[in-house]
Design a protein around this nucleic acid. Structure first.
Lengths: 202, 202, 202, 202
DNA sequence: AATGAATGAGCATTCATTCAT
DNA sequence: CATGAATGAATGCTCATTCAT
């Protein structure tokens, strides 16, 4: 009895994930508006009606996808988890590249819908971005105070670092660039870090 | 006769621009899919049918907007029009920020539609981006060869520079950031240039 | 064995009644078309599937409700079970009012569905109404022949009496009127009878 | 110009009526819930989309039908427009019968939907019915005071009169009875009036 | 017998496009 | 050229019914 109840809940959770993944693929391919519930159902190999046993609406599918992937994005962009400055940058970029590649479908849904969905823009881009910038700024200020970094404006520096990370991720999100593997991700992260730390000048 | 023909053509061209601007405003506000021809007609203060005297379809409106604004984007990102390295960077960034602010509506249409429109992505983002990177890379290689820049990988450096420019423009495109005026644009461009040229390290 | 079979049948009969009562409540509240099997199941505290172990379809539920309540309606309207004319009228009206109040839910289902369901209209309203009028007419003719009533057209008189009873029951069926108790029902029945027997004129 | 504008408005009004009449026929036949916009469009010999150029929704169609016919119902039931008591009753009943026959489709929509539509029930049945009873009661009280009628309870008498009128109209509304012509309507009105005024007793 | 997840036909509504005026 | 009413295909969503457990 209890066992079957637990199994049923587990199956329901599996079903939810299956539908969400299918929806993410279709949304990523077509965009939210051009995606149809018919196509999502076909992608998930279920009938249209079944979607509505697990999600209240097409809009609920979208928001559930965003909620699944967005929090991880801002954690990933965190720079606080390494010892040496260089390692922090390299590690942060590597995590970012990995996260973006692993969650490309869901993140591209987030990225493409934020433009026209006030709710997503407010809740996940503006708020998340502001907090991210604040943390980066605080961290940079500490490093400047400790003399490890030049006395640059930490607000601008934070914006440049985040902008660079986001800008470098865009082609991956758009599906126009793929890293060949972990080594390439690492090498790119190291090269970018080198440029950010030492600059372009001779 | 000829005069009236010319005048007529000129008026027709005005009408086209008027409709295109209205469409850009509505697309920017609602997104292409959620914009209706009814709303575009109302915004342009004409009737729905008139749209079809100047454009073949709603899709044609979209592509015409893209075609109007996209070429300027890549010219703007060009770094070749200044003497000193620093001035090239500062000038390029200033132009970019100005161009993005001036064309925010049309560019946000481009940015938001590229995610789900293969045609736009291919023709304007991939091709344009590739050429832009190529030009930047060539230019950087010359500067490295001349000893003005460190011997970094020019391909990576080009990607970082473009990524930073794009990443810094995103909040403006999304409408979540506005420069207070030309001075702020210039100051930001200078600070970003300083970071790109000299790096973060002490 | 036999005993358990009988018990089982009795339980099944209980279940049927339980579902039918739940369906009548929901149909009465929402109307047949807007009622859902999901809501009926919830009201009966069973699962949707179980309904179909006792009834062939939602339509079967409706017809079973009608079949349960409609025959009683026409028996109730019968005027043949009293001695004095006045008592016959008063008693008939009292029974009608009581029956309508007691079966308000099921009767309102009948009343509201007859408008759009040819089967119900034909089988229960037209046929039942015709027989009712015929019996009333026969009875009135006897009373006219015996000199107890004026020589009015018995067909018209029957229609007026039935119409009055039905018309007075409508607010109760609609749920917009409730008698405060048996005394009010009796008093109303007496007042109406007085008017029907003696008329309005001074 | 002005002429064509006026003509256009007139045509639009025609269209509205055409659609409303078609909807009333289909609602009357199938009931609101079982009627489809597809069938209404076919009945009106237009396409489905055109309905929405004139009405906001299927629900708007329903409420527009009710609003068209309901006010007339209560005016018709008014008893105030004749000299002699008998003539008032006969005239009132004749008007009622005519009105019901002429507006059978729209009225049957009102009658069948009031059961399940709180808005219609409240706004058109309860409020309208209450006012009607009040007017009838006032009028009866005057006639009682003037000695033309017996000293019966005017509230009960009003309910009986209205109930009789409504009850007699039901078969017409349901489509199970048709008067053969104006003479039959008049004769029935006279017979019913005779019974109401003089009662059944010898 | 009881359950409730899965099904898919069917519905109201939207909107790009056409075309008679 | 301008208009806007008419069109009808396409869509998100509902719900009676089935059936594996």
């Amino acid at each position: 009895m209890l066992e079957s109840l637990a199994r049923r809940q587990k199956q329901a959770e599996e079903r939810r994930k299956q539908i969400l993944a299918a929806a993410a693929r279709v949304f990523s391919r077509k965009g939210y508006d051009r995606a149809t519930t018919k196509e999502i159902a076909a992608e998930a190999q279920i009938s249209e009606g079944t979607i509505y046993n697990y999600f209240a609406s097409k809009h609920d599918l979208l928001m559930s996808i965003i909620k699944t992937v967005a929090p991880g994005l801002f954690e990933t962009l965190d720079l606080d988890n390494a010892e040496q400055i260089k390692q922090r940058f390299v590690g942060g970029l590597e995590f970012l590249f990995s996260f973006v590649e692993e969650n490309q479908e869901m993140l591209s849904v987030l990225a493409s819908e934020a433009w026209r969905n006030e709710e997503i823009l407010e809740e996940w881009i503006i708020v998340g971005g502001r907090e991210l910038l604040k943390r980066a700024e605080t961290r940079l200020r500490q490093l400047i105070d400790s003399g490890e970094l030049r006395p640059v404006d930490p607000a601008i520096a934070a914006r440049v670092i985040v902008a660079t990370g986001v800008g470098l991720s865009l082609p991956v999100l758009l599906g126009t660039l793929e890293f060949s593997g972990p080594e390439e991700r690492r090498k790119t992260a190291e090269q970018v870090t080198d440029l950010l730390l030492h600059g372009l000048l001779a």
